[in-house]
Design a protein around this nucleic acid. Structure first.
Length: 224
DNA sequence: GCAGTGATTTGCT
DNA sequence: GCAAATCACTGCG
């Protein structure tokens, strides 16, 4: 049997890292590793694309695209909880998406993980996606719904988990990965506040979900 | 380009 | 209580 174990070089980030606003945490999450320890395999991928969603306490830049915009509900309760927890939601009747909460409890900052580069358990990821092992990394984990299917992340099993707890099956790690320059562009697939530059991706990485549409007349670097 | 799919929320009685 | 609108997506044409 081939059960991968967590490499010794992978360290959990500090909780304090997640106390900052999502537009600050999000770019620093690029290059980190999301790992899911299933009963039979460790599935892990490097984060290459994220989006920040601002909590409703931010009145200078309202974010009506955020699930937290209208305040706490049963669905989004985890967003208003402590930082570095998983907020998993179900959308369009068939897809799960996974977010990382940030900011102190009550403030509902959130970061959507949009794309990964597969690192461990790639064959199992392909099986989870009902794709041949020969499929590309892009097909496997490029897109928020795809990566949840590949890593077998669901709301019933993973919503609300602490991503820094050693006993949690779903965890975040950092290693000595040297981060490539990142791009900052508008978020994808939303109706409201579609112009805010809150999408962060590793420039030119093949697993980034799509070619970033840059706001016209501006450079795509660090311009929040 | 657009159909599929169902949880969630909102806005009415 | 119930109906309708909404939705941070994916895969197929």
């Amino acid at each position: 049997m081939s059960v991968n174990s967590i490499p010794r070089s992978w360290k959990s980030p500090k909780r304090a890292f997640f106390l900052s606003p999502p537009e600050i945490v999000a770019p620093n999450l690029l290059g980190s590793i999301l790992g899911h320890q299933t009963p039979t395999a460790l599935l892990a991928g490097r984060i290459v694309e994220v989006e920040a969603y601002l909590g409703p306490h931010i009145t200078t830049t309202p974010d009506p695209a955020a699930h937290s915009f209208r305040g706490p509900t049963p669905r989004n309760a985890v967003m208003f909880g402590p930082p570095a927890h998983a907020y998993v939601y179900f959308i369009y009747g068939m897809h799960y998406c996974v977010n990382v909460t940030c900011e102190p409890e009550g403030m509902a900052g959130c970061i959507l993980i949009r794309a990964l580069e597969p690192i461990l358990g790639r064959d199992q990821m392909a099986a989870n996606r009902n794709l041949p092992a020969t499929t590309s990394d892009f097909n496997l984990t490029s897109g928020p719904g795809r990566l949840c299917q590949a890593l077998a992340i669901t709301r019933p099993q993973h919503n609300g988990l602490d991503l820094l707890a050693p006993e949690s099956p779903l965890r975040l790690f950092q290693d000595d990965f040297s981060q490539a320059p990142h791009e900052v562009t508008p978020r994808i697939g939303i109706r409201h506040a579609a112009d805010l530059p809150l999408r962060f991706s590793l420039a030119g990485h093949p697993c980034v979900s799509r070619s970033p549409a840059r706001p016209s007349g501006s450079t795509p670097k660090n311009e929040f």
